[in-house]
Simulated assay, not measured.
Amino acid sequence: MKIAYLDNAATTPLKKEVIQVMVNALKDNSFGNPSSIQHSYGRRSKSIIEESRLKISKNINSYPSEIIFTSGGTESNNLILRSSVLYLKIQYILTSPIEHVSVLKTILDLSSKYNVYVEFIHIDNKGSLDLNDLEKKLKKYYNKRILVSLMHANNEIGNLLDIDSVGNLCKKYNAYFHSDTIQIIGNYPINMKFAPFDFATASAHKFYGPKGIGFIFIRKELIKQMKPLITGGYQEYGIRPGTENMYGIIGLSEALNLSSCSFYNYAKKMKELKWYCISELKKNIPNIVFNGLSDTNQSIPSILNIFYPKKDHLLYFHLDLMGVAISKGSSCNSYNVKQVSHVIQYIADKKFLRKMTPIRISFGFFNEKKDIDLLIDAFIKIKN
């Protein structure tokens, strides 16, 4: 049976070069504890980590010391948000109702435990942020300790945030800016020297690297103010104690390096796949509805979100049986088959929620037009 994997926003397949570099590291006696620098085994492991950190920093144009390795996106977002409240003494957090659950749930937890005041910035029915409302709220809390937490590209509808405008407002009102950049870093170019973030997050399995490894970018001026959430050794500048996942780190750095060498071609291919998919959907599925800005240039080309014009909780499984892997939204929030994601619930017209089925289609490096043809054929067979 032909198979089309179209859930790359959830996770991506490993590139063969990434597998090879990890296997090589597993085989070549790089088993030493990187903190045991008294002997060559430990120093060898330590050098692999620091060489990887340097390679990553070059690819995103940051200082090596601004990169802190973690287990992935959820830990990274938690570490930044919780450390900001505990150690930067953040009193007010401004965010949006369509952030990833690792941001929303963490912020709500901080609000209840530490009396942090949270306000949600207005989002319209296309998922676009109201910059005027953001400025109004920043002005309201001027001279307070404020953190703005907004994702660069929404992981469900693909909408792109105007990060420069948000960054300028944060600077104007003396607020810190954290961005969940997990759908961006490793897939599209980013220059941290000129980016407006104080904090950003990345996860290797979103850009053809291994699961269980990611990193935080922390602006160098803030590194010394951040402290660990768990106590232990002095690994990762004392911010994230615990023996590092060396094999994951080397896989992450190789994946990022490979992606950085082909950002232009990757983006071009994603755009071609996306517009071909949009065209075929419009041609073959009457009354289809596009969610967010996913059918415009104001979203990343690798994510497309639609309402399929029929209410069917088993649609995803029917497609899977026909060889097509798609999702209803974020994999971190998909355990309840009947529950529509908080993002779609917030922006969608209620009549669509009652009568249609939300679907996220996300393209990747290994996809071709034939995968979209398979998806369209499956939709047609289900419709008939």
Rank of each mutant, 00 (worst) to 15 (best):
E236G: 08
T11H: 11
S57V: 01
T11E: 14
Y266F: 14
L321Y: 11
I372G: 04
I306Y: 09
Y316K: 04
F365R: 12
I250M: 10
F365H: 11
I213E: 05
Q183E: 11
V337Q: 13
L147M: 09
L129T: 05
V23S: 01
L108Q: 14
G209Q: 10
S36Q: 11
Q235E: 09
E119W: 03
K227A: 00
S330V: 01
K113W: 00
I359H: 10
E221C: 00
I249Q: 02
D371I: 01
E66C: 00
V23Y: 00
H122W: 00
D180P: 08
G72E: 08
D180I: 02
K351Y: 05
K220T: 03
A153E: 06
K283A: 11
S35W: 03
L81Y: 02
P210H: 03
S45W: 02
Y346V: 00
L54K: 15
A325Y: 06
Y173M: 06
E221G: 00
S52Q: 06
G72I: 05
K227F: 03
M192A: 08
T70Q: 02
T201D: 11
P189H: 04
L94M: 08
I216P: 13
L131M: 14
K311T: 08
L321K: 15
L314Y: 12
D295A: 12
L147N: 04
N143I: 09
S262E: 06
R360Q: 14
N168S: 08
S112R: 12
H178R: 00
Q339C: 03
P358Y: 05
I288V: 13
G232R: 01
S45Y: 05
L314N: 15
D373W: 07
K105H: 08
R82I: 12
P301R: 09
L281R: 06
L110S: 07
E244W: 00
L134R: 10
G233Q: 07
Y234W: 04
I218E: 10
A200E: 03
T11C: 10
